[in-house]
Design a protein around this nucleic acid. Structure first.
Lengths: 105, 105
DNA sequence: GACGTCTGTAAAGCTATACTTGACAGCCCA
DNA sequence: TGGGCTGTCAAGTATAGCTTTACAGACGTC
């Protein structure tokens, strides 16, 4: 019988995609921020603010990154999604109790 | 040996989450748009514009929906993500060729 | 006929995101 | 001294995500 990991609520926010980009991807490619921005065809400032985790990876940016490092856009969008979801859950924590739960369809 | 589905580029946009909401979820719950909006604690207009596929499901909205119909926020966010990604790929189709591909890390 | 509730739609307004360009200061290296 | 790097700020634009107010048409019921 197969085993399944139980999906528990997380204690901390899932990594921002900027962290992976900054710590793994760019070093692995040996590219400077400026050079990567040029190749991605976005402004240096925009890439910088993603690396600094001050901006999110938009769907368009995910497409660029997916092409750029050959791992597909979905990877980057999923990272960002997990991050955003965590934030949204935090933010709505109290309000959420007021929303009725309906039986799963 | 296991078989794996090959992931081909899609010809059409993946369904907008509004379509599932409008065609499956709300009917299954037997709720009017107004009533659902009240329970979700968002404006009727906002929910309406998602159902009409004129607005996207934001991370916050996904959390509301996840609670509301007990299937988890990730479901709704994934639907929206797939939809957005398709749109972004369309939009960047030509520009994308100018971005160099690096060997997968 | 009048009431209440639903629906679709539009408009104004607010805050925040996703970008751009330009600019400045500081760093390291040749 | 000059080059390209980096971090950061500021201004500007466009769009998203939300709200409230408002109006019109449909439907059911008393």
């Amino acid at each position: 019988m197969a085993e399944y990991a139980v999906r528990r609520p997380l204690k901390r926010a899932p990594s921002h995609p900027g962290a992976i980009l900054r710590e793994d991807t760019l070093p692995a490619l040996g590219l400077s921020v400026s050079e990567a921005a040029r190749q991605l065809r976005v402004s240096r400032q925009m890439l910088h603010s993603i690396l600094a985790e001050r901006s999110a990876v938009s769907p368009e940016m995910a497409v660029r990154l997916g092409r750029f490092c050959g791992n597909g856009a979905a990877f980057w969008l999923r990272l960002q999604g997990a991050h955003d979801l965590w934030g949204a859950e935090e933010k709505l924590r109290t309000e959420l109790e007021k929303i009725p739960e309906h039986p799963a369809a």
